[in-house]
Write a protein that binds this DNA or RNA. Sequence first.
DNA 1: TGAACACTTTAGAATCATTCCAATTCTAAT
DNA 2: ATTAGAATTGGAATGATTCTAAAGTGTTCA
Lengths: 134, 134
Amino acid sequence: MALLGADFRLTPHRREVFEILQGSTDHPTATDIFTRVKDRAPGMSLATVYNCLEHLSSAGLIKQVHLERGQSRYCANLHEHVHFHCETCGKVTDAHPAAGFDPAKFWNLPAGTKITRTELAIHGVCSHCAAKHL
Amino acid sequence: MALLGADFRLTPHRREVFEILQGSTDHPTATDIFTRVKDRAPGMSLATVYNCLEHLSSAGLIKQVHLERGQSRYCANLHEHVHFHCETCGKVTDAHPAAGFDPAKFWNLPAGTKITRTELAIHGVCSHCAAKHL
DNA sequence: TGAACACTTTAGAATCATTCCAATTCTAAT
DNA sequence: ATTAGAATTGGAATGATTCTAAAGTGTTCA
C-alpha cells in the first residue's frame, strides 16, 4: 500500500473511481471513467470524477498521463513502466522495463538537477495493427 | 534540410513562425508565439499561428510537445533530445543524449511493434531553483 | 492577359476538456 | 446533537484549440 497523506479520505466515490481504474488496462479518460461509473454509482457527477481523480493522483494512488493534446488519461499501474501509444488504433498499453533504467545516465542534465519523475511515451504502430497492413 | 512534403509551401507567415521558434529556446506555446509574431507581422491572427504550427509540424520542421495538461508547446530542435520540465519555475529545457538511446532495449514491447517516435519528459527541479532552496 | 482553381488567411463562432463556484450534504470529533 | 471541515453537486466559466465561411493570394495555362 502506498503511503497516504494524513488528510486523504478514501470516500465511497473515490473508491469507485479507483476500483474502476484498477480494473481497466486501457488508460481511460475522465469521461470514459464517468461512463463506467454510472453503472455502479448512478448519481456521480463528472465534476466529482475529476475531483476524485485529482485527489487520487495527489495521494499517489494513480497517475495522470499526457500522451497527446486532448483529454488526460489515468492509470492505476504504479509499477515503473512506460506507455506505448498506437497511432493507428489509438490504444495505449503499458510496457515494463527489461532492465533498470536511469534517465540520468543517458541525458546530460545540469549538475544539481533533481528528478522527481520521468514519463516516456513511445508512439508507433502496435503489433496488432501492423499485422493488418501486410 | 528536412525532406518536405511535395505540397508544403513555406509562405511568409509560416516562415515567420518558424524563425521565431528557431530563435527561441524556451518551448513557447501558441499564444507565446502569437505575442512574439506581432512585432514582425502585426496582422497575423492566432488562428493562422495555429495553422502554421500545424503545417510546420506535419512537414517535420518543428515538433509539438505535450508535457502537461494545458497548452501545447513547440520546439524547432530536431536533434534527438528529451525535455526537462522544472516543476518550480515551469521552464522547459532540452537535454541531449550522452549516448545512443534505444527504447526497445529497455522496455518489453510485443514483437512486431513499430516505433515511430519516443517522447521522454523528465520532471523535477532545475539546478537554478534547487540552489535557491538551500 | 485573365479566368479558373487551389491554397492560405482571417475573424469570429463553436467545441471540448477542465476548473471554478456557490449551495448542499456528509463525516468525524467534540 | 453540534459544529467545523471535507466532499459532492450542477451549472457556469474558462482556456485552448478547431471549425467555418468568406476574402485574399498566387499559379497555371489557354
